[in-house]
């Protein structure tokens, strides 16, 4: 049992890394599509051979030619089926803010909510793009934050940096703020969208910034290659990346997991949608030894020992993996369970 639940963390990290790879892959596929459509791809593969851009195009070319319908036979030779490849590549669009993956259209509920409020009209495509995210959140809670969000992953990694700071004999602060901040931000943002018809939260919502920055980065690299300059180049990034960097530094030096715990309006919306989720972290009180390792492990700063995982929990399972006594597990139930009474408090235990 223990081993299997440890594997959940491995799976979660794999999903998070794949999302980041996907965010770089989709804009590259877009550029590959342009080159295939313009019948330039074979020339470019030859001309850019050995460079970062050339190698990534070759990789993408390999993937799409390998798919069914990607190749055809012409005059005894196996060549790329241009139409087949194009029909496949055009299935991938967007990123962590809103994406098209094959037949599935996905949108962040925050973006959809703002767009609907600002336009004051509900259109079908928005609702269709919400089906998968909302159903997943209704069942599993804030899993976007713990499994998909690229910024969540980035900040989880920076959280590990706080431990490393100890070797430099720096003790980072851990300032606490109100968890209500994110709900206030959500309501204020929604109000601005409704009153002044401007979807403002999309500008400061980190997964949306990350989405646009990844797009700009990849497009910048390919634009540069078209001018004959190769290799990695971060010049496509805009200063919105500094917002992400600022959040990261603030979390490392001032407040642990500040953005996700206290400020993120998207996290607030996911929390509200997933408030009645059936899949919850649950405690087996008999096994719990009150070692408090789960409290240290929880990225959101909750206390799983109380057995009352409310709206904030993002079901990441860090507490389950950190528990040495197999006292925590995922369980199917609608509310927080019975309160786990600390053993040292004999008056209540009786």
């Amino acid at each position: 049992m223990k081993v299997e639940l440890k594997k959940i963390q491995v799976l979660r990290r794999t999903v998070q890394v794949s999302v980041i790879v996907l965010l770089l892959f989709i804009p590259s596929v877009s550029r590959y599509t342009n080159y295939v459509a313009a019948r330039e791809i074979d020339d470019l593969l030859e001309k850019w051979d050995g460079t970062l851009q050339g190698e990534s195009l070759a990789l993408i070319d390999g993937i799409f030619r390998g798919l069914p319908g990607g190749e055809k036979e012409r005059v005894g030779q196996i060549v790329r089926d241009r139409e087949g490849v194009l029909s496949q590549t055009q299935q991938f669009r967007g990123g962590s803010w809103s994406a098209q993956l094959g037949p599935i259209s996905l949108s962040d509920p925050l973006g959809a909510l703002e767009s609907i409020l600002a336009r004051q009209k509900v259109v079908r495509v928005v609702v269709v793009s919400l089906i998968v995210p909302v159903i997943a959140t209704l069942l599993f809670g804030r899993i976007f934050c713990s499994w998909i969000c690229p910024v969540g992953f980035m900040l989880e990694m920076s959280d590990k940096l706080r431990g490393a700071l100890r070797y430099l004999e720096i003790r980072p602060h851990d300032m606490h703020f109100s968890r209500g901040t994110k709900y206030v931000l959500l309501v204020v943002g929604a109000a601005i969208a409704f009153i002044s018809a401007a979807p403002v939260l999309g500008y400061i919502y980190p997964p949306a910034i990350f989405n646009r920055e990844a797009h700009d980065l990849v497009f910048g690299i390919f634009d540069r290659a078209e001018e004959g300059k190769f290799g990695f180049w971060a010049g496509g990034l805009t200063w919105m990346s500094l917002v992400l960097l600022g959040i990261l530094l603030f979390e490392v030096f001032v407040s642990r997991r500040w953005w996700c715990r206290y400020v993120c309006p998207g996290g607030a919306l996911y929390s509200l949608i997933g408030a009645a989720r059936p899949v919850r972290v649950s405690l087996i009180a008999k096994k719990c030894t009150h070692c408090a390792d789960c409290i240290v492990a929880c990225p959101i700063g909750l206390n799983p020992m109380l057995n009352k995982m409310g709206v904030e929990c993002d079901n990441c399972g860090e507490c389950i993996s950190s528990c040495h006594d197999d006292a925590l597990k995922y369980a199917l139930r609608l509310r927080g369970g019975e309160e786990n009474v600390p053993v040292f408090d004999k008056s209540k235990a009786a």
Partner: peptide, 15 residues
Amino acid sequence: ATCIRCTRCADACGV
């Protein structure tokens, strides 16, 4: 008001 600034159209553009 409606555009959510998501980059999907730029990815979809064939040229």
